[in-house]
């Protein structure tokens, strides 16, 4: 059933593909975290944008990532811009998860009691100082683990890039499968890789949570 020799033979190829998956994850997440922050801050700074932004966020979160990947990949050529599959995929991952991240930031800011803003006004702190010294330090402990969870979720969605033939793990496993007619080892190895990465990152997130909560938010 299980061919160990074959497993070891395909391992280097899979490892190389794993690097692509991880690259896509990191690039996508940096984009998501930044764009999400921009969305969340825009809502606060420019009140009239709150409604359109929440509709946009709802729109992105309500439709499948796979469709968004296809859309970005195929729509750019009709504007005369050709994106390679990897870029289109990272862009789609980043935009999709930016919608989720913006909600994380928003919840983080919303959770801070009104009294904190009021006390800052009473102390005559400028809005910027209030934000930097009072709000941000209190918002970070709940935000970090939530973002961490989305990082893991994003990582687990990178196999979708195989649909536009990015040579990440899943696509590589499928190619190995179709060439050798042995799917058991490559696909199972991909699954185990994701399982291991998820368990490790879950442990990291728990550790970060403990670290952040050790010092009570001042």
């Amino acid at each position: 059933m299980w061919d160990w020799a074959f497993t070891f033979e395909i391992l280097p190829t899979l490892a190389k593909a794993a690097v692509i998956s991880i690259e896509a994850t990191l690039l996508g997440f940096v984009l998501a975290a930044t764009l999400g922050l921009v969305l969340a801050l825009t809502r606060i700074a420019v009140p009239w944008t709150a409604w359109p932004i929440s509709v946009l966020v709802e729109l992105i979160r309500s439709t499948p990532l796979l469709i968004q990947i296809f859309f970005l990949y195929f729509v750019f050529p009709s504007f005369g811009v050709t994106l390679d599959a990897f870029t289109a995929g990272v862009l789609a991952l980043g935009i999709h998860y930016a919608a989720y991240c913006s909600e994380v930031y928003r919840a983080g800011f919303d959770n801070i009691p009104r009294g904190q803003w009021e006390a800052s006004i009473a102390l005559n702190l400028s809005p910027w100082t209030t934000f930097r010294d009072i709000i941000i330090p209190q918002a970070i402990p709940p935000i970090v683990p939530a973002l961490g969870n989305y990082l893991v979720a994003l990582f687990k969605e990178t196999p979708l890039l195989s649909a536009i033939a990015v040579l990440e793990l899943m696509q590589t496993a499928k190619i190995i499968g179709s060439e050798t007619f042995r799917y058991t080892e490559p696909i199972t190895m991909v699954g185990l890789f994701f399982l291991a990465m998820s368990l490790v990152s879950a442990a990291f997130i728990r550790a970060a949570e403990r670290l952040l909560n050790r010092r009570p938010a001042r």
């Binding site: 687990k156 969605e157 990178t158 196999p159 979708l160 195989s162 899943m170 496993a173 499928k174 499968g177 799917y183 696909i187 199972t188 991909v190 699954g191 185990l192 994701f194 399982l195 998820s198 368990l199």
Partner: peptide, 13 residues
Amino acid sequence: GTSALVQLFWLFF
């Protein structure tokens, strides 16, 4: 811990 697509492919292939 594993991705949904991996699970589908595993069941399928």
